[in-house]
Amino acid sequence: MVFLEVEMQGNVVVPPDQLDPKGLLLRKGIVLRLLEDIASRKASKEHGYYIAVTTLNSVSEGRVQELTGNVVFPVSFNCITLKPCKGEILMGTVDKVLRHGVFLKSGPIDNIFLSEKKMEDYKFNVVDEPMFVNDKQQSKMAKSSMVRYKVLGIKWMEWDRGFQMLATLAGDFLGPI
C-alpha cells in the first residue's frame, strides 16, 4: 500500500463550552476536533484511508454560527493516508473461510476477497474447521492464517467509506506464510 502525505483544508466546529480566551486551549480544542473529524471520515476515494494528522498548517479566523453559538474555524493541515494500488503484493490475515474463497484483512482494509478460482492447487476442505489445503506443498489457509497475495482489483464503496479488493495467488512466492 502506498503511504501519501496530503495537504487538506476543512472546517473545524468548536462548541462554545470548549472556547477559552487563552489561545493555547483554543488551539488544543481545534486539534482535538480535527482528529475526531478525520477519524469519523475513515477514508476517501481520492486519498485512501486517513491514518494520522501530522501538522496543523494554519487556522483562520473563526465565524460564529448564530443559531448554535458554535465557532467554525477554516483549517489547513497535512495528513498521512494509505491507498491500495492494483498489482501490489500485500500480506493479510484470513478472516472468514467460505466454500468459494476466503475473506482477508490487511491493515485498515477488511473486505478483501480471494476466490478459490484464483488459488492455484488449493482445494476446499472441512475436517475440523473449514480451510483451503494444498497437497503438494502441504500448506493450508484457515482462519487467522497469514497470506501473501497480489491485488487484482479495487473498488470504492461510498456507503461503507472504504475499499473492496479482489486478490489472487497467481505469481511467485504468494500464498500462506
Score class of each variant (00 low, 15 high):
150 K>Q: 09
156 W>R: 15
155 K>C: 07
168 T>D: 03
159 W>K: 10
133 V>C: 06
163 F>C: 01
138 Q>G: 01
141 M>E: 04
132 F>V: 14
151 V>F: 01
150 K>W: 02
128 D>P: 01
130 P>V: 11
146 M>D: 04
170 A>R: 12
167 A>C: 08
150 K>L: 02
166 L>A: 02
168 T>F: 02
146 M>R: 13
145 S>C: 08
141 M>C: 08
136 K>E: 06
163 F>M: 02
144 S>A: 07
142 A>R: 13
128 D>V: 02
160 D>N: 01
141 M>R: 05
148 R>D: 00
154 I>C: 07
157 M>C: 14
151 V>L: 04
162 G>Y: 10
148 R>W: 00
170 A>M: 05
142 A>V: 04
170 A>N: 12
149 Y>I: 03
170 A>P: 00
170 A>Y: 12
137 Q>M: 08
160 D>E: 06
162 G>M: 08
163 F>L: 02
134 N>Q: 03
169 L>M: 05
128 D>I: 00
143 K>W: 04
151 V>A: 01
135 D>R: 13
158 E>F: 07
144 S>K: 14
133 V>Q: 07
165 M>Q: 09
147 V>P: 04
128 D>R: 12
141 M>S: 06
168 T>G: 02
155 K>F: 12
136 K>M: 02
156 W>A: 08
158 E>R: 08
160 D>W: 11
147 V>L: 06
169 L>V: 05
144 S>Y: 07
160 D>Q: 06
156 W>I: 11
156 W>Q: 13
154 I>W: 14
164 Q>W: 15
132 F>W: 14
134 N>G: 03
153 G>Q: 10
149 Y>L: 06
143 K>T: 06
144 S>E: 14
151 V>G: 06
143 K>A: 04
156 W>N: 12
138 Q>N: 06
150 K>P: 04
151 V>I: 13
